[in-house]
Design a protein around this nucleic acid. Structure first.
Lengths: 214, 214
DNA sequence: AGCGGTATCTTGCCAGTGTCTAGTTTGTTC
DNA sequence: GAACAAACTAGACACTGGCAAGATACCGCT
């Protein structure tokens, strides 16, 4: 067994190519990224990316999968940083973590949801996406067990929470949002929106009882 | 003055090209659309689209502006179809109309928010977008006047409502959502999510008083 | 030390793309 | 009918993604 899994000519070209994708998107947007430009940025020939990722869709899919991992890390970190006494506080933290990821890694975020430019059946991509979604459903289930859903369908609450922070992230990154409102700090806005949702939709339970399950 | 503004060779090539864009996106996704393919679909030479729209970005920008008009029409129609007794019911109708537009015209919706492929400074595009956004802020203002904001900042409520339905639309169209949940009718889901938001965030005012303004 | 095998990466090619320039056709106006 | 403007075509250019063939560097094995 070798000490490094990949350490031939370049060192770790796949990682270098993914980094090149990020800087290329930062410079010219997702639609402006080309395999050849990415290859140039990494200092290799124009056909090298295809060797590792199969095609442009394969490269972007790997980039998107890496994005899902960054998303999960950001969410977990934000939950850990908060007190997160209960599921509701945890849900607000997840929302902040989601937006924090999107704003810190807009290139990843944009690619993750451009399924027409990706290979959506890719196993790694699906697994990474499942793992991230599981964080949300687990927390909504915790809210349900604590009786904070007040009879609302868990699925609707989960979809609403996800849509809320996803929409906020997408609108912020697209630039449609910051040009229209006074608040210019996305993190404060994310906190306000998340708190609004949790306070209004998931107020503390009256008795100690729990809601009905899914 | 001529009776028709544009009626030379083709009849109305700009409109035909915009229709061709929609079918091209339906066939091969936004990233798969090319000026030459659009021209072929309209039965004209490869350089004809550039003559009318300047560039690929110009063509997509015109398509996005048309999307904003369709969005406004869908929202207004949904509000009119509902009873819409007060601002809160109106807001829920706006949410349903937003999602209905996105699901009925996914090609337009996707292009509208791909600002990296557009010419975001285009006057028509900006105006169409402003008009659509104005419908939302006007309704939130009506809720505020009716005392249904309960002290919450109007800006945060407006952003939350917009983010909620935008996220729901984007996730549904991207396919990430329908593959994860039981509800397969986007319109019923939109109604459930909109109602959840309005019930929880904008319950009827206790007294008759109004909240503080912006 | 040297050999075979393999993964890495390069080079060259192809059809297709967006944009530019020049030219042709068509309709309007005087 | 002639001058003009607008609509559209035809050709060229640099660029793209994908493919096939080859060169290079590393590894395990004897």
């Amino acid at each position: 067994m070798s000490r490094w899994i990949v350490a031939y000519h370049h060192g770790d070209l796949p990682a270098a190519l993914l980094a090149a994708v990020e800087s290329a998107i930062a410079d010219s947007g997702v639609s402006g990224v080309s395999l050849r430009d990415v290859a140039r940025r990494a200092g290799v020939s124009h056909a090298a990316p295809a060797h590792h990722f199969g095609s442009k869709a394969g490269l972007l899919t790997a980039f998107a999968a890496a994005g899902y991992q960054l998303l999960a890390e950001s969410v977990i970190k934000e939950v850990a940083a908060s007190d997160a006494a209960d599921g509701a506080a945890e849900l607000a933290a997840i929302g902040r973590g989601y937006v924090r990821f999107a704003v810190s890694h807009p290139a990843h975020f944009e690619v993750m949801f451009r399924l027409d430019a990706l290979d959506p059946g890719n196993a790694e991509f699906v697994a990474a996406s499942e793992a991230a979604y599981g964080l949300l459903t687990a927390t909504v289930e915790r809210c349900r067990a604590a009786g904070r859903l007040h009879g609302r369908p868990p699925e609707v609450v989960a979809v609403s929470a996800w849509s809320l922070v996803h929409g906020l992230s997408a609108l912020w990154i697209s630039g449609r949002l910051p040009e229209r409102i006074a608040e210019q700090d996305p993190q404060r806005l994310a906190a306000a929106v998340s708190d609004l949702f949790v306070e209004a939709v998931l107020p503390p339970a009256r008795a100690g009882g729990s809601d009905a399950g899914l």
